[in-house]
């Protein structure tokens, strides 16, 4: 049953994937201009790129995303935990989060560049900035949503704070953390694109803009496809984590 449903789902995905190419091809015939090459032409360009080239560019982009997400998770989890478990810290930090949350983080890009230069640091920091506020808020709310008596049995048999965190707080907050990452991942990928326009010769953002400047449209589209693939892989990864850690909800 489960396998059948999964096969069903995958075949629907493939159908949509195929359908998009049909639309693309139709548009290509309609537009009939070098700025929109045919799917075949783009895949040919992708083939000419060489595996090494693709791996380096995709790898750089993935590395920046992972570093940014990891950093945001670690700091966000710590602050969220502090705010969720202590009302004093919540009172202190809540206005800070409340005031900084609506600031469009992408607008901070020039500031981050000024302070941290054009290298990897500013790119990773930007991704972290996008994610961290959402993570803080959702971790805090996730922890607050755990009923206080969930801890009772473990407390009465003498569990320490570390054991309570590991067995109750973290797993209890994990579902909100995962859904937050899923939601903010899209934004993080867009920001990644911006940060890869400057100060680097690797990464999918650089690759796409470089092809665009050289008027090499097939390669530009190949880059966009690969970039989408990066996003797709990341979503798949979150789904996988969700499947692994959220089994108990079904």
């Amino acid at each position: 049953m489960v396998i059948k449903r999964r096969l069903n789902y995958i075949s629907r995905l493939l159908l949509v994937f195929f359908g998009m190419h049909v639309v693309w091809y139709a548009l290509y015939l309609l537009v009939h201009h070098p700025m929109l090459p045919s799917p075949l032409r783009v895949y040919q360009a992708m083939g000419q790129l060489g595996v090494g080239n693709i791996v380096v560019n995709v790898g750089y982009s993935l590395m920046r995303i992972f570093a940014g997400v990891l950093l945001a998770l670690i700091i966000g989890l710590l602050i969220g935990l502090l705010m969720g478990r202590s009302s004093l810290w919540n009172k202190l930090l809540d206005p800070v989060v409340y005031l900084t949350y609506p600031v469009p983080k992408i607008a901070l890009l020039p500031v981050v560049m000024l302070f941290f230069g054009l290298g990897e640091t500013s790119k990773i920091l930007m991704i972290m900035l996008i994610l961290i506020f959402q993570i803080i808020i959702s971790v805090r709310d996730g922890i607050k949503a755990i009923p206080e008596n969930t801890y009772d049995v473990l407390t009465s048999i003498g569990a320490g704070p570390g054991q309570k965190f590991w067995h109750v707080t973290l797993p209890g907050a994990l579902s909100v953390i995962l859904s937050t990452i899923r939601i903010s991942l899209g934004t993080a990928i867009s920001v990644l694109f911006f940060t890869e326009i400057y100060g680097t010769e690797h990464g999918m953002g650089f690759f796409i803009m470089d092809a665009w400047l050289r008027l090499d449209y097939p390669q530009m589209y190949a880059g966009i496809l690969l970039f989408s693939l990066v996003g797709f892989i990341l979503f798949l990864l979150v789904d996988l984590l969700d499947y692994r850690f959220m089994k108990w909800r079904k």
Binding site: N149, V153, A159, H167, V168
Partner: peptide
């Protein structure tokens, strides 16, 4: 050592039956 059986069962929803017991024993 004090064992507690609360009205709402007090099981951790994210752990299987077996690991609920195992965690309590380890602590």
């Amino acid at each position: 050592l004090i064992g507690l059986v609360p009205q709402n069962y007090g099981l951790l929803p994210w752990k299987t039956v077996k690991s609920n017991i195992r965690v309590a024993m380890k602590i």
